[in-house]
Design a protein around this nucleic acid. Structure first.
Length: 416
RNA sequence: GGAGGGGUACCGAAGUGGUCAUAACGGGGCGGUCUCGAAAACCGUUUUGCCUUUUACGGCAACAUGGGUUCGAAUCCCAUCCCCUCCGCCA
């Protein structure tokens, strides 16, 4: 969330940010009226409490006749507090629904078509035959079963068999090893179910519950990304400034409802209710966060470079930017069979937006407390990487050559 | 799931209805004195949030969380969460 005082004092700037994203700005009107109401109430309550405290002091000194007077005052306070509770609740709902402001370097745009390509690595390989999509390859090789998984669960679930399951595991190991051994991230194995407070900290709640799976009869939700548990590790903490930056990586399955995507990308591994991902999270001081956005993105790119998968990097335009992010780079891998670039990683700087929600601070050398900046990026989405390997490493007879970087984890050079 | 104990600051811990609890006491951290330097000792300091347009040597709030009783709650009552011990169950 944004700082209340900041919104109040920079209402035009916030309005501009909302407009750039294509959001309605009417929320700011309710913000203003509710905020003023809230502030007046706080003042009124504080004043009444001050008065009561003074009288209480005199009662303590023996002026018992004042007891009657303070009764009324207490009733008044109780009444005001009740109103304040409601106002505060309504106000919070508004406050938590205002998105982050796009960074000044983010290009203006309305749709994903307006995202700007800033980098392209390696040319897509030329095939002497028509390359097939990964779902055909996987099915023919018997390593990917998307029919039985529907029987077990529902559509948008898949199952790997034999070498396919091994390839998936190899990818997870390869990515985690790269990030821990080469890039300096600390590996975490977090819970896959988290509570509402945690989901609110990173911005999934209250606005985006429709896309989350919730466990019945509990306050637990299935994580849609490891970003949620990792970023919230230090919620309600004041970190030592010397301990920053903190770099975490984790492998987790991710669960998403993908509501509103009926009929879209139903085949293959692109859009699933459950998929594996290795995530990168960075917690920094505010001055470092944008340079870490570059580092983080290059850490994710390194996975594709080592797997020798062609990709491009785009910077998301204001209209395509996620709710909590200030700036986002998407990495898109080339899918030979599908004949297009597909998002495989999203690397974002949230500045202090998540830190405010999750209450994550650090202490400076001078002893002051400040909000940290948080960043995260996929490093990478495992299912899509799996698909990219199948499509880019296929042979004319439908075999898959294993990329060199994975051979130590696979023990074989070809899946056939 | 059953029985019992507990949740107070960075940590340990006291306080069990009004001598103001930011909070005793002990430890730790930070600053200083002493020292060539260090240790020890001594002195000082050490929560967070909100409101007052900025600021204050200003005000308010917070003792797991949320309600309640009371003129007044860390303290009494109710609910919820979490931790510990024992029993049962179990990967």
């Amino acid at each position: 969330m944004l700082e209340i005082k900041f919104i109040r004092e920079n209402i035009e700037l916030v309005k501009e940010g909302l407009e750039k994203r294509g959001y309605s700005t009417s929320i700011l009107d309710s913000f203003q009226s509710k905020e003023e109401k809230r502030r007046k109430l706080i003042q009124e309550i504080d004043e009444a409490r001050r008065e009561r405290n003074k009288i209480q002091e005199r009662i303590n000194k023996g002026e018992m006749e004042l007891i009657e007077k303070t009764k009324d005052l207490s009733e008044k306070i109780k009444y005001l507090e009740e109103i304040a509770r409601d106002v505060e609740k309504e106000f919070d709902e508004i406050l938590y629904s205002i998105p982050n402001i796009p960074h000044s370097s983010v290009p203006y745009g309305k749709t994903p078509e307006d995202n700007q390509e800033i980098k392209r690595w390696e040319k897509p390989k030329e095939f002497s035959f028509t390359p097939r999509p990964h779902w055909e390859l996987g099915k023919n090789l018997g390593i990917l079963d998307q029919e039985r998984s529907v029987k077990l669960s529902s559509s948008r679930f898949s199952m790997f068999f034999g070498k396919g399951a091994l390839l998936e595991r190899a990818l997870i190991f390869f990515m985690l090893d790269l990030h821990t051994k080469r890039h300096g991230y600390i590996e975490i194995s977090p819970p896959f179910l988290v509570n509402s407070k945690t989901m609110t900290g990173t911005g999934q709640l209250p606005k985006f519950s429709d896309d989350l799976f919730k466990v019945d009869d509990s306050d637990l939700w299935l994580v849609p990304t490891a970003e949620v548990p990792l970023t919230n590790i230090h919620s309600d903490e004041i970190l030592d400034g010397a301990s920053l930056p903190i770099l975490y990586t984790a492998y987790t399955p991710c669960f998403r409802k993908e509501a509103g995507s009926y009929g879209k990308e139903t085949r293959g591994l692109i859009r699933q209710h459950q998929f594996d991902k290795v995530e990168l999270v960075v917690i920094t001081k505010q001055d470092d966060s944008y340079s870490y956005l570059e580092t983080l993105t290059s850490n994710a790119e390194e996975v594709l470079k080592r797997l020798e998968l062609p990709y491009r990097v785009v910077v998301l335009c204001t209209g395509d930017l996620g709710f909590s992010a200030s700036k986002t780079y998407d990495i898109e891998v080339w899918m030979s069979g599908m004949g297009k670039y597909v998002e495989i990683s999203s690397c974002s700087n949230f500045e202090d937006f998540q830190a405010r929600r999750g209450n994550i601070k650090y202490r400076t050398k001078e002893g002051k407390t400040k909000y940290v900046h948080t960043l995260n990026g996929s490093g990478l989405a495992v299912g899509r990487t799996f698909a990219a390997i199948l499509e880019n490493y296929q042979t004319s007879d439908g075999k898959i050559i294993i990329p060199h970087a994975l051979r130590e984890y696979m023990e074989e050079e070809v899946i056939q």
